[in-house]
């Protein structure tokens, strides 16, 4: 039986980083250099958290989870814990969440649209981590 992780805790973050490094092919990631901060509002413990992903040349350069002010990112996506967790579980598409206003994006939309498939690839990897939400 595979190990269960607690979504967004330290062990989950280490596992997510490991899986992303293994799964993300720089070629498939179009050699992209960008960064994105997901802001989780109203987590189960009442706090807010952020999840930060940075890619350089299509390779994962940084993946972190934290509290407080997130690192400077090219894109910032704000939503409830429930919405962002549903995306990580693969239950909700990020595009749909944006189009229905459940997520708010800050950053250059014209560029974000081209990055959407890449974000989906990241979420697909995260959805494979057995987690308690």
């Amino acid at each position: 039986m595979s190990e269960m992780y607690t979504y967004l805790d330290a062990a989950w973050t280490v596992e997510a980083r490991k899986r992303l490094e293994a799964a993300l092919d720089p070629e498939k990631m179009n050699g992209i250099t960008t960064s994105m901060a997901d802001i989780y509002e109203a987590c189960p413990d009442g706090k807010s958290r952020w999840l930060f992903v940075q890619c350089e040349g299509g390779k994962l350069a940084r993946f972190d989870v934290g509290e407080g002010e997130p690192p400077e990112a090219e894109f910032r996506i704000v939503g409830s814990y429930a919405t962002l967790a549903a995306i990580s579980k693969g239950e909700l598409g990020s595009q749909k969440a944006l189009m229905t206003g459940r997520l708010k994006l800050k950053g250059n939309m014209a560029k974000a649209l081209r990055l959407a498939p890449l974000a989906d690839r990241i979420n697909k990897v995260l959805s494979t981590i057995p987690s308690n939400y």
Binding site: G101, L103, L105, M109, A110
Partner: peptide, 21 residues
Amino acid sequence: QDNVRAYAPMGGQDQVSALQS
């Protein structure tokens, strides 16, 4: 290129939200 932005029917990206931000 970075100064050419889009608005769209998405959270935070509608015309007014994009301008406000």
